[in-house]
């Protein structure tokens, strides 16, 4: 459960990011995609992605949110890395079905096969990456709205297992820009991730890939 939820918390923003690489790269003056199909077509054309993230996790037991910052990387078709650099250092690297986590408490590795929830999420990631809207609809109730330059995308899990962890994921953007992603949990906790300095269509040398997608992350982005 714990792993599934943690993977979920990490994967959802990544899913969104990958799905929106083109939109993120595009200028603010571009109109929002007119429909979900258009948005998904852009997702399918995603390449390597590098972005800076700023996360604010608001927990009901804390008076102030927990803030973290770091870098997010995606290399098609199935490699994702999130390296936190502030306030402490931690990393999550996903390669196919294998998830590696490193933080101040140590290193852990687990297999997505062991978690129905995590497996579904990675499956979703691949579905979105392929622009497979039909498969995405099988797993989520999707609500997409756009008006002029702004748009919102809401995902509500269909399965009970996913719903026990995530109540709703809300994406908001203007034109092709992502402004925020908010994840709400059934207990009222919520996490907001903002992205900046996004680069898409990035290609790396093998040596850089090995460095980025390891749980001993580079000090500076390559």
């Amino acid at each position: 459960m714990r792993r599934a939820r943690s993977v979920l918390a990490i994967l959802l923003p990544i899913v969104w990011l990958i799905c929106n690489v083109d939109a993120l790269a595009a200028g603010a003056s571009e109109p929002a995609p007119g429909d979900l199909e258009a948005l998904m077509r852009r997702f399918a054309e995603s390449g390597g992605v590098r972005a800076r993230f700023r996360e604010s996790r608001q927990l009901s037991i804390l008076t102030d949110p927990i803030e973290t910052q770091g870098m997010l990387y995606f290399a098609p078709p199935d490699r994702l890395a999130r390296h936190t650099s502030w306030p402490g250092r931690s990393s999550i690297v996903i390669e196919a079905d294998r998830v590696s986590i490193s933080d101040e408490t140590g290193q852990r590795v687990f297999d997505l096969d062991t978690s129905e929830v995590a497996r579904a999420l990675v499956g979703n990631l691949m579905v979105v990456f392929r622009g497979d809207l039909e498969a995405l609809r099988e797993r989520y109730s999707i609500s997409f709205e756009s008006a002029a330059e702004s748009w919102t995308l809401d995902l509500e899990p269909r399965s009970r297992a996913l719903r026990s962890v995530i109540e709703r994921v809300h994406f908001a953007g203007e034109g092709q820009n992502l402004l925020a992603m908010e994840t709400r949990e059934p207990n009222g906790d919520r996490t907001v991730v903002k992205f900046s300095e996004i680069e898409v269509g990035v290609s790396w040398q093998q040596r850089d890939l090995d460095e980025i997608f390891s749980i001993d992350p580079p000090d500076t982005a390559p």
Partner: peptide, 18 residues
């Protein structure tokens, strides 16, 4: 606990901590 809640896989901890 405050420090552990900042870890990347702290979702379950956040749920059970109360």
């Amino acid at each position: 606990l405050r420090r552990r809640l900042a870890q990347p896989d702290a979702m379950l901890l956040a749920r059970t901590a109360p």
